[in-house]
Amino acid sequence: MNFADACMHPYPHGDSSVRRLAHEAAARGYDGIVCVGISPPPDTPVRVIPAAVVAGKTFKDISVQVRRESRSADLILACAGDAGLNRALLSYRGIHILKGVHAAPRRAFDHICARNAADSEIAVDISLQPLIGSRGAARQKVLQCYADILRLQRRYGFRLAISSDARSVLDLRHVRVIPHLCGLFGMEPAETTAALGTVGRLLHPDMPVEVLE
């Protein structure tokens, strides 16, 4: 998968069905979508990856949820919390993507979190929803947060994932527009393309080379 959206919320969490989201995603240039809380229907134009979002105050709460959800979901997305929780989550290989860093307290994602994310191969989610849906000071805060994450990513080399956090087909944006939206906080087009391919690399990680005879 070259272009996959890292998080969508179909009906009943949102107002669009999985099939409709898949059709719209195909029309907008995606070849895969990650949908939360559903089982994927068989006949969709793009690959639908079932996922679960886990959230909690403590690492124990989250690890219990991860063990329960990992039976049915291919990808586990954990909501970010304070710095201590984020450091613990990013050292735990049961989760795949850390989301909601923009909504976490200030300095909740620091250089230690960045190093842990790089070591554990956990991606950090860049949600486009606050860039599209908010205005003024709220959007400026999100842009600052994403610029900060990008600076750490360039230093430590952890993975970034891009999600629309779409609850409706009207929240989806075309793949061609995403590099320009990400350019608002200094992300280069090549970095955006790599981030859009992160979901595929999380599902099929690079394995050690096996020599056959």
């Binding site: 907008r28 849906g133 075309h174 061609r176 527009v177 320009h180 939206l181």
Partner: peptide
């Protein structure tokens, strides 16, 4: 044009009802 298209991507409502603009 790409700056305008990016601005269009942040349009979410028109006359109080939801809309999206895709280039």
């Amino acid at each position: 044009e790409w700056r305008m298209i990016t601005a269009c991507a942040t349009v979410t409502s028109l006359n109080g009802s939801r809309i999206a603009l895709h280039p």
